[in-house]
Simulated assay, not measured.
Amino acid sequence: MHRFANPGRFLRLSGRVQPWLIGAAVLTLGIGLPWGLFLSPPDYQQGDTVRIMYVHVPMAWLAMGGYTGLAVTAILSLIWRHPLADLAARELSPVGAAATAMCLATGSLWGKPMWGTWWVWDARLTSVLVLFFLWLGHAALVRAFDDAERGARMGAILALVGAVNVPIVKFSVDWWNTLHQPASVTRLNAPGLHVDILYPLLVCALGFTLAFMALVLARTRAAVMERRIRTLQIAAARRAEEPGNAPLDARLAGDLA
């Protein structure tokens, strides 16, 4: 793992992967969203309201899966001191918070016609709301300290503590009597969806996952480059203060070139 922690190696590798990742995301979503939103049949009970699921379900999976990834970066940061783990976690939390917010918003849009209300303090809904606050808390905490390393340590601790909520979100419909329907896709016996609905849902989920990964990768690349430029600026400023050295702007231009 530490072989990929070198910023230069990471930038070179991610630079080759990112265009393919973006292209795959655009292609998959270009197929999945029209298939699900316009071409798939309505549900026999929910009617056309079921089409919200093609966005809602992938966002719910990304909210949980993304937070699991955040916990992994926390382990890499706290135990192995992985140099890129802190940057990846810092850039992951805003994207994860946005996915969770989309999950809550689309769930409310579905709940109004199905349940007759925008929100209920259901176990699943409440645990996802807690997950959203955990995402926001991590995003704010890592940026709350002047010492970036200290903020990263505090954020990693919060990520590990908050990971306890992920299985609660997942199994809340099994542990408690809730209004939210139980799992339809990941049941052990067989999916509870017809293939005409299941297949476009899986394509949409893959497309949103690829887009999520591409966005996090792009943000992490930008953070690495920003840190490298800042390091060069500091080094150039120190050299410029030494007698006989070139002015700061000329030294920095030479380093960046």
Rank of each mutant, 00 (worst) to 15 (best):
P7K: 10
M1H: 08
D196T: 13
D147P: 00
K170L: 11
L134I: 15
A123V: 12
I52M: 08
T186P: 00
G111T: 10
N165Q: 09
M114I: 15
T178P: 01
S93C: 08
L217T: 15
L198Y: 05
R150Q: 13
L39T: 04
M154Y: 15
L62D: 09
L232R: 11
W135K: 07
I229L: 14
K112W: 08
A214L: 09
T100D: 10
I197W: 00
G244A: 04
R228E: 15
E91F: 02
L160N: 06
G8L: 10
H194G: 02
M53A: 11
D196A: 14
D86T: 15
L131Y: 02
W35P: 05
G207K: 03
A250F: 08
D48E: 14
R143L: 06
Y199I: 15
L131M: 14
Q233S: 15
M213Q: 06
R221L: 02
M213N: 03
H2E: 12
S93Y: 13
G151R: 01
A101G: 13
Y199N: 01
T126Q: 10
L87W: 06
T220I: 06
W118D: 03
W115E: 07
L104T: 05
R221G: 04
R251E: 09
A240C: 12
R3T: 07
Q18C: 04
C103H: 05
G47H: 04
G15F: 13
F133D: 07
A60L: 07
A163K: 03
R12L: 11
L62F: 10
A139Q: 09
A237I: 01
G32D: 07
G30Q: 03
P243F: 03
V55H: 01
G8V: 01
A71R: 05
C204K: 02
Y54L: 09
P34D: 07
L13F: 14
S77T: 13
W20H: 02
R143D: 13
I31Y: 03
R12E: 14
L134R: 00
Y67I: 03
G254Q: 12
A101D: 03
R228P: 00
V130G: 05
F208H: 08
T117G: 01
F212E: 01
T49N: 14
A71H: 04
I197N: 12
T186Q: 09
L62V: 06
E226C: 00
A183M: 06
M53I: 13
G254F: 10
T28H: 00
Q18T: 15
C103E: 05
T209G: 14
A105K: 01
W110I: 12
R187L: 12
R3E: 05
N177H: 14
F38P: 05
V161Y: 01
R219A: 12
L62E: 09
A257C: 10
G66C: 04
W35V: 08
G107K: 07
L37Q: 10
W61T: 06
G137C: 07
F4S: 11
I31D: 08
P191I: 08
R227N: 13
G151H: 05
D122E: 08
A89E: 14
G107E: 06
T100L: 09
V224G: 06
T126M: 13
A253I: 02
R90L: 13
A152R: 14
L248N: 02
A71L: 04
L134D: 10
H194A: 08
W80R: 14
